[in-house]
């Protein structure tokens, strides 16, 4: 499953759906929102936006790349957009394969590719302004 969602990601359900008798490994990567602090200010939440449907299609392409490179039987990538509070899952990647090596490698590949090709952006909303991550554009001084 490849999806961009606005509600909390049910990681447990993704893992349960990936388990199957011909696979001996299910690897899961969950990216969670981290709160940074400096100069007495802190991040209150993150806000994500996506260019759809391009972003949806790019997630599917990453899945196809993985299936070309590794012997995997299930790949799910779910990215959340909108407001995501600290410590919550912003992205979940679940890969099932007959053996553990491909599952580990493919899940790592997926998150690295997401950070390069999928048109999704996040801004950190701080107690004293916001900043677009990667562009350093915002209202914090």
């Amino acid at each position: 499953m490849f999806a961009i969602v606005e509600e909390p990601i049910d990681v447990g359900a993704l893992i349960a759906d990936a388990q199957r008798p011909d696979c001996g490994a299910v690897s899961t990567f969950v990216g969670t929102t981290r709160v940074d602090q400096n100069d007495g200010a802190s991040v209150e939440y993150l806000e994500y936006e996506a260019y759809r449907p391009m972003a949806d299609r790019k997630l599917e392409e990453i899945g196809a790349e993985i299936e070309e490179r590794w012997d995997v039987r299930e790949v799910s990538i779910v990215h959340r957009i909108g407001r995501v509070d600290p410590g919550q899952a912003s992205v979940a990647i679940v890969v099932a394969s007959p053996r553990r090596g491909p599952a580990f490698e493919a899940s790592r590949y997926a998150i690295e590719r997401i950070k390069v090709v999928v048109p999704i952006w996040k801004r950190e909303v701080w107690s004293d302004g916001y900043v677009w991550v990667g562009s350093q554009v915002g209202t914090r001084t």
């Binding site: 998150i111 048109p119 990667g134």
Partner: peptide, 8 residues
């Protein structure tokens, strides 16, 4: 127009 992506 796409700024540097920052998903994840």
């Amino acid at each position: 127009v796409l700024p540097p992506v920052s998903g994840g």
